[in-house]
């Protein structure tokens, strides 16, 4: 299949890649023709026979019209929103019809994904976001894209499967693991300083699994008021390293998931952090771009780029 339809970033739909075949209702239409023909023959009624042949011709002409509706449409790969493993992937394509009439009732779906309907005005590009099935960490390749339409009469289906040359990135799924040791050590120093200084103590919150032991509010626990955790606001300039080597878990995927979790956690706390992976290092920084950089590094760790 890949040989017949090689990958490309964009496709123009034409007679080389469009297929037409009667839809189920097309066979119902043949049945209608048969009924009319029998009526016309039994009553020796030429007008009814002409009607039967009209239905037949409409069926034939519908093939051309169904083809014309999709022909001269450009399908271009736009990109994919980064997602976490196990979540549905949202990929976008851009459609643009050079038809004078535009394009009606076109349905799109990546293999295994959800069907979306669109209609295009002539010459006006339109982007469509398609939901694809969940993927695993690493590079993500879209399955083949189905573009189909039963317009104008619903009796002929015109379709094509396109092999769009797009690549996306799927981050590891965040999983809660103990905080990496390196970060902890740095934190400890900070924490001590904060504790002695006292001015950066931000408040208490309910304990969540994975909170560092040294932040536990033991005094409150001792008063039987429940398990609380002390929160500290991070002073600017304090730096944290998320290090592959310092992860408490051994499994590669689990480690990556853990690093992902902590990267997200630090990002949420607006705490600068850096990432050290075997062979890769992302310097300490904050912000969305930085987070994306780190998560991409995690996603592509030891991942093989698809051909």
């Amino acid at each position: 299949m890949d040989q017949r339809a090689p990958r490309a970033a964009s496709f123009r739909l034409n007679r080389k890649n469009l297929y037409t075949f009667p839809h189920l209702t097309g066979f119902a239409c043949l049945g209608l023709m048969a009924i009319l023909w029998l009526l016309g023959t039994n009553y020796q009624n030429n007008l009814i026979l002409a009607l039967a042949y009209s239905v037949m011709s409409i069926l034939v002409v519908a093939i051309l019209h169904a083809y014309l509706n999709l022909a001269a449409m450009d399908v271009r790969w736009l990109g994919v929103q980064p997602t976490f493993a196990g979540q549905p992937v949202e990929a976008s394509v851009e459609l643009c019809s050079a038809n004078k009439q535009g394009c009606e009732s076109v349905e799109l779906r990546f293999a295994g994904g959800e069907l979306r309907q669109a209609s295009l005005d002539s010459g006006a590009p339109q982007s469509v976001t398609l939901v694809c099935p969940a993927a695993t960490r690493g590079y993500w390749r879209p399955g083949r894209l189905l573009v189909q339409s039963c317009f104008p009469l619903g009796i002929i289906r015109c379709w094509t499967w396109l092999n769009l040359d797009g690549v996306g990135v799927v981050y590891p799924a965040p999983r809660v693991v103990p905080e990496p040791l390196g970060a902890q050590a740095d934190n400890l120093a900070d924490g001590l300083r904060v504790e002695t200084g006292g001015e950066d103590f931000a408040g208490l919150r309910v304990y969540r699994p994975g909170d560092p032991m040294r932040h536990m509010a033991w005094k409150i626990f001792a008063q039987d008021k429940g398990l609380y955790c002390k929160e500290y606001s991070q002073p600017q300039g304090a730096d944290t390293w998320l290090d592959w080597q310092s992860m408490a878990v051994q499994d590669t995927e689990l480690r990556l998931s853990g690093l992902c979790y902590w990267a997200l956690a630090y990002h949420a706390q607006q705490r600068p952090f850096g990432l050290r992976l075997p062979g890769t290092e992302v310097p300490i920084d904050t912000g969305d771009t930085h987070l994306h950089q780190c998560l991409t590094a995690l996603a592509l760790f030891q991942a093989v780029k698809p051909a």
Partner: peptide, 24 residues
């Protein structure tokens, strides 16, 4: 659509074989 289907209809009407009534 009607206009496009008419020529083929006329051809079918002219050349398709005619049968007698199949039943009363």
């Amino acid at each position: 659509l009607l206009l496009h289907s008419m020529p083929l209809m006329v051809i079918l009407f002219v050349v398709m074989p005619r049968l007698g009534p199949l039943w009363t």
